[in-house]
Simulated scan of single mutants.
Amino acid sequence: MAAITGVVITLNEADNIDACLTSLNRICDELIVIDSGSHDDTVARAEALGASVIHQPYLGDGPQKNVGPRAATHRWVLSLDADERLTEEAVIAIKTLNLESDKHDAYALRRRNFIGSRWVRRCGWYPDYCIRLFDRDRTGFSESRQHASVQAKSPQRLDADLEHYSFANLGELFSKASGRFSNRAAKIMYLKGKRANALSPTLHGANAFVRKYLFQAGFLAGSDGVSVALSAGINAYLKYAKLLEFQRDAQVLNAEDFDRVW
């Protein structure tokens, strides 16, 4: 098997970093953590598990995720978020790849998204293919500072999963949707010149809920399906409501720090 460098970006990920790096250690010959100023013991934990830590103020999603691959010793990079872990089937699938003479420039894994310990299989949350393994000489993350993805030209999907523990509980699902997720999205839209009208929050919020609950079969996921659909609707409603507020209320606009979007 070709040598692989594992890369993770972090900010206060002490609760996640051990499990993430332990799973990467099963495959990777080198571990690199890009930390953007953690105040907990993320860095100490990462170093204890053999990772090299690069201290880098946060640049936005894509630029930050490209720091590690540029510093990697090996061509092939396995990039995980700190709240992701490789499953046993993913470890086996990657170990069987012939990366040294491969025509594919990247590989995608199915992602199991969790609330607490509950795997949500509806609402568009599964299979949720994400490219995580790629040849840094041929591709890398886009420079988008929000929701960046690997811009591979000939990726291949693997028949294997990774696990994503993105929300510790329902409270976190809703607090993230109503807080920093919607705040950041509203700022980005305002800076890009996008504008909302009085109907925008309600229409976008209703559309997001219906898409998750009906078209992506959230109704088959019980109360968690309702929760995911509601959080998506709240996030969509609030980001347009906040955008509209920037347009209508000079006091709110002037009090907002648009230099701290990320």
Rank of each mutant, 00 (worst) to 15 (best):
A3Q: 11
I4L: 11
I4R: 10
T5M: 10
T5W: 05
G6Y: 04
V7Y: 03
V8I: 11
A14V: 09
I17K: 02
L21C: 10
S23E: 11
I27E: 04
D29R: 08
V33A: 05
G37D: 11
H39I: 11
D41T: 14
V43T: 15
A44I: 11
R45G: 10
A46M: 03
S52A: 12
S52H: 05
V53T: 09
G60R: 14
D61S: 11
Q64E: 07
K65R: 15
N66C: 05
G68H: 06
P69Y: 01
A72M: 09
V77H: 05
D81F: 02
A82N: 14
D83E: 15
E84Q: 15
L86F: 15
T87E: 02
E89D: 13
A93K: 05
I94A: 01
I94W: 09
T96N: 03
L97R: 00
E100H: 02
S101A: 10
A106Q: 01
Y107T: 09
Y107F: 14
A108I: 12
R111D: 07
N113Y: 03
F114L: 13
S117T: 14
R118V: 14
R121K: 12
R122N: 06
C123T: 01
W125A: 13
D128W: 08
C130M: 09
R132E: 03
F134Y: 05
D137G: 08
R138V: 13
T139R: 00
S144P: 00
S144H: 12
R145I: 06
R145M: 06
H147C: 04
V150A: 07
V150R: 01
A152Y: 05
D159M: 13
L162R: 01
Y165G: 08
F167G: 11
L170H: 08
G171T: 10
L173F: 02
K176Q: 13
S178P: 13
G179A: 05
F181P: 02
N183V: 01
R184S: 03
K187M: 14
I188R: 15
L191F: 02
R195T: 12
R195F: 13
N197K: 02
P201C: 14
N207G: 02
A208W: 13
V210C: 10
V210K: 15
K212T: 00
F215V: 00
G218M: 11
A221H: 07
S223K: 14
I234R: 15
Y240S: 03
Y240P: 08
K242I: 08
E245F: 06
E245W: 01
Q247T: 03
D249V: 08
A250C: 01
Q251R: 00
L253K: 01
D257W: 04
R260D: 07
